[in-house]
Amino acid sequence: MGTATGIIKALNSGVKHLAVKRFTLRYPEQKLKLVGDGYQFDPATGVGIAGYKGRHMLFHDHCTGCNLCSIACEGVAEAIGMVKVPNTWKHNKKAIMPQIDYGKCVFCGLCVDACPFYALYMSNDYELSSFTKEGLIYTPQQLQVKPNVQQDAEIQIDDRGATHG
């Protein structure tokens, strides 16, 4: 193949892309649809349930204040600290619950694997930016709020290329 033919072929390959759909996620308007309601773990079988590893969800009625999530995080990011909670339940005699610093969390999900009481899951919420460092620290009260996410863009593939719906 001569030089001229090669260059024309290369240019042609680019020109063909004028007819190909644009493969760009227009992010704040479009958000990618994620699998399930977030990463969960089933201690009975010892296997996790597929899902996005985003901001945590804490179920106050399951948490016993056993510290295991905090111990697991000590070797990873030291993001989880146990804090006193004012109201006490029968199952949480220590009245402590995890508080997570998202300035440190690496979203590995090993704290979820460590929880034997189905109290800590991860959710699809990944928009956690804050103007202050204190804003990144989520208290147990903030962690029990179910995130309101609207994610519906999916990769669609047809003859003219792939798009985000």
């Binding site: 990463y39 996790g48 349930i49």
Partner: peptide, 22 residues
């Protein structure tokens, strides 16, 4: 991301298999 739940740092493999089923 669908498999592991993270886009880049997956922490997916674990001694004994993988963290979660596909």
């Amino acid at each position: 991301e669908k498999m592991t739940g993270a886009r880049v740092t997956h922490s997916y493999f674990i001694p004994g298999g993988v963290r979660n089923d596909i």
